[in-house]
Structures are given as C-alpha cells and as structure tokens.
C-alpha cells in the first residue's frame, strides 16, 4: 500500500513525516510529494496544513493540477484522505483567516476565528485538550473518549451538516475537532504530536 503525504510547500511538515514514518515502518510505502502522478497512484493521502487558511489554499493552487488531482482522488474516486489542522479546515467552502478565501468545498461549511469571549480564552488554543467523541469514526478505533490531543489553532471549522462531526473539544465552546464523511477524515488536533494516542489514530488511518 502507498500512503502519500502531500508536500505543497506550506509550513512545517517534518513532524507529520516523522510520525507517519514511525507508524508505517515495514507496513506501507510512504511518499512525501506534490507530484500529481504519484498522488493519483496512491491508496491514501494525508493533507497537512500549517500557517493561515489563505496561505495554505494559495500554496495548493500554486502547484499545477494539484487541487484537481486531490478532488479526483477524494471526491470522485472516494479514496481515503486525512486532513490535519488547516488540511482539515480547507475541506470547507470558505475561510476567513487573513482574507475571505475560497476553500476546497468538499464538506460544506466555513472556517472562522474561535470566539474567545473578549479575551477570556487565550488564542491560539495551544496545548492538550480532551476530545469528546460524537460518533463512531474509523480513525478512533481503540481510542477512548476524553483522550487528550495536542491542539494549536485560532480558527475553527463549522460544518453545515453536523452529522459529519466525529469529535468536539471544549474551548470557549464546543469546537469541531474531528470529522468523517465517507472517505474523508479530518482532525483539527495534531495526531503527529499527540504522543501514543496520536500515533494510534495514524495507525488506524493507515490500516483503513
């Protein structure tokens, strides 16, 4: 099996590479690339994302044919794709970080700034928070409810269809921190930085 981490020159993906390398050891082939041919022939895709919504979308668009290839992979061919942090946020129709920016539009909804209740909650939301599992998700196999995951973000994904939400976390309000819609998976938290529990989620995705 081939798992591809999409490297679209936005932000730091070393930790994603390190954690997937650790989990994939001897089990699957791991590629880190933006080569659309290699992406097409993969079995699974990981879409990381660091920095702002706008900078990530801009970087995706800069690579010729990448967005179409990803769409073909995930939406038409319905093969498993995991978005992490801004990688998940980009599933939305629109994001408001820096400037109003069109997202990939794969899961209808928007990405807006966390309401920090006039400074009562510090932003970014940084650190370990508990996830509250809202529905069964394939990537949560053997993950206990209220497990701790590592978060770093100031914006949240608000999907229109609440049935896609697989977990939330409590920070000023119930923030969507994981979604599953058919073959699409996304986590707002960083499984690659969430110690053994995070590695388990990566393992679950790889074993899908």
């Amino acid at each position: 099996m081939n798992v591809t981490i999409v490297d679209y020159q936005s932000g730091n993906i070393s930790s994603v590479i390190n954690s997937f390398t650790e989990v994939a050891k001897g089990k699957v082939n791991l590629e880190v690339t933006s080569d659309t041919k290699k992406i097409k022939s993969s079995d699974k895709i990981v879409l990381p994302g660091q920095g702002s919504f706008k900078s990530c979308v801009d970087s995706l668009n800069k690579i010729k044919g990448l967005v179409d290839t990803l769409k073909e992979f995930a939406i038409i061919n319905k093969k498993p794709l995991l978005g992490i942090c801004v990688g998940l946020q980009m599933f939305a129709d629109v994001g408001y970080e820096e400037a109003e920016t069109k997202g990939l539009g794969w899961i209808s909804g928007k990405v807006s700034k966390i309401n920090n209740q006039s400074g009562k909650f510090k932003l970014p939301h940084i650190g370990w928070n508990e996830i509250e599992i809202q529905k069964e998700s394939k990537i949560f196999k053997d993950i206990k409810n209220k497990s701790h995951m590592y978060f770093v973000h100031s914006y949240e994904f608000i999907p229109n269809d609440k049935s896609v939400i697989s977990a939330t976390t409590d920070y000023s309000s119930k923030i969507v921190c994981s979604v599953e819609k058919d073959n699409l998976f996304g986590t707002q938290f960083h499984p690659e930085k969430s110690d053994k529990t995070g590695l388990k989620i990566i393992d679950n995705f790889i074993k899908l």
Binding site: S14, N18, S19, T21, E22, E192, K193, D195, K196, G198
Partner: peptide, 8 residues
C-alpha cells in the same frame, strides 16, 4: 529527537 518523541 524528533524521530523518537511525538510531543511538541
């Protein structure tokens, strides 16, 4: 370290 530790 980054290859062995999976916390920030």
């Amino acid at each position: 370290t980054a290859k062995e530790c999976f916390v920030p």
